[in-house]
Amino acid sequence: MECQECKQNPATVHFAQVINGEKTEVHVCQQCAMEKGYVSQEDDAYSLHHLLSGLFNPKSDETHQQSHKTQETDLQCDKCGMTYQQFAKIGKFGCASCYHTFAEHLNPLFRKVHSGNTAHEGKVPKRVGSDIYQRKKLRDLKVTLQQAIAEEAFEDAAEIRDEIRSLEKDLNRYEERDES
């Protein structure tokens, strides 16, 4: 396959994105990829931030962007000082708080980068996210309970139910402590 930019070298950098079933592919050689900013030489191999910063380009979604324009330029992270405009330009967050500051603009971006996904599935830290971890465990246990009942494994179900109760008690205690 030849590079779609220079039409000379073989294409070695390949990107594809599927957004709501609509697919766009980019096949270019390393040189063109660097020139066009799809990859950067010094960064890690997977960096797509140049491609990403293109996603903020108003051309892609003009009407939507215009109505938000003034609002967006006002946004600034009070923890690290990064503005929305800076974020859009470099395509990287300045700190953890930026995720909250720019929250309302992130879903479309995440959808494009992560095949339509916007919410985390998977590992939860045990200590920092202990209550989140417990809540996730609770959700998982409830699913297992339903399965056990459906399979008429009532002894297992009783055990799981007890586990759920004690977990719920723990979680309530956490929340009361947080409120006081």
């Binding site: 997977y46 960096s47 797509l48 931030h49 990403l52 395509g91 990287k92 967050f93 953890a96 995720y99 992130l106 971006l109 995440f110 980068v113 919410a119 985390h120 599935e121 998977g122 590992k123 830290p125």
Partner: peptide, 9 residues
């Protein structure tokens, strides 16, 4: 959002 990273990717 899960583990928060500098790059949205």
């Amino acid at each position: 959002r899960g583990y928060l990273t500098s790059c949205p990717t």
